[in-house]
């Protein structure tokens, strides 16, 4: 098995000539939780989509577990999209079963555990769930997969503090960091800071810094939020 879960080599991505990522290279070690931080439009979602194999680089290469990222890696990557992808006419339980049918590594037993951890009712229809509970359900779907790579695009955005807290808690208790690597984009930096190993700061399609979060505190004596301000000012 390769050391690195995700590897970007000189990746440039243009959308209709507009530069989204400009010659980006980095790799992610296994078993770490990494946050992608940066202003809106800086390229965070593009990095996640590339790692999920949903879009292709204009130049350079993206590999996941040593394989080129394309549609065929969907079985090894759990990708939580920013947009709503749940079917409104399913109940919560039907949504779980539907996903269990889609992905061979979906652990239905684990899904039910996380469901009760999050206080979600299995019989409720998705269309009757609050936004917070839809956010929770999306997390349940991502965490129930035994995929070696979990990608989450803004899992906390637009949710109230209680929901955010329950999502962070369920990540701590249900991720298997022996075998799983997490990359997520977020603006709620202060809240996720305690659960992070690494942070990648990105601005205008370029990576400005990759740092170990504990190092930032130890060597710079800065909280992550203050460090980000410095990284962006560079």
């Amino acid at each position: 098995m390769s050391e690195h879960t995700v590897k970007f080599t000189n990746v440039t991505k243009k959308y209709l000539g507009r530069m989204a990522l400009n010659n980006v290279s980095f790799d992610l070690p296994r078993g770490k939780i990494t946050a992608l931080v940066g202003p809106n439009g800086s390229g965070k979602s593009t990095i996640l989509k590339l790692a999920a194999g949903l879009v292709h680089p204009t130049q350079g290469s993206v590999t996941v577990l040593g394989k080129t990222a394309n549609r065929r890696i969907a079985g090894e990557v759990a990708y939580l999209s920013e947009s709503d992808f749940l079917y409104p006419f399913f109940t919560v339980e039907e949504t779980l079963k539907f996903n269990a049918g889609l992905f061979a590594d979906f652990d239905l037993q684990k899904a039910k555990e996380i469901l009760s951890f999050m206080d979600l009712e299995p019989d409720k229809k998705v269309k009757h769930l609050s936004k917070g509970n839809r956010g929770r359900l999306k997390i349940v779907l991502a965490l129930s997969r035994r995929a070696p790579l979990i990608l989450m695009d803004e899992p906390l955005s637009g949710l109230d503090p209680m929901v955010r807290d329950s999502i962070i808690k369920s990540m701590i208790s249900h991720l298997d960091l022996q075998g799983q690597t997490v990359l997520m984009s977020t603006h709620e930096v202060a809240e996720v800071e305690p659960v992070l190993d690494l942070v990648i700061s990105i601005n205008e399609g370029k990576i400005t810094c990759i740092e170990d979060v504990e190092n930032i505190r130890e060597q710079h004596g800065l909280s992550l939020v203050d460090w980000m301000k410095e990284a962006l000012a560079k």
Partner: peptide, 14 residues
């Protein structure tokens, strides 16, 4: 490790 991580609200690696 996991219980403690949950109690403290931190990453199990920590």
């Amino acid at each position: 490790v996991r219980e403690m991580a949950l109690q403290c609200g931190v990453n199990p690696n920590t």
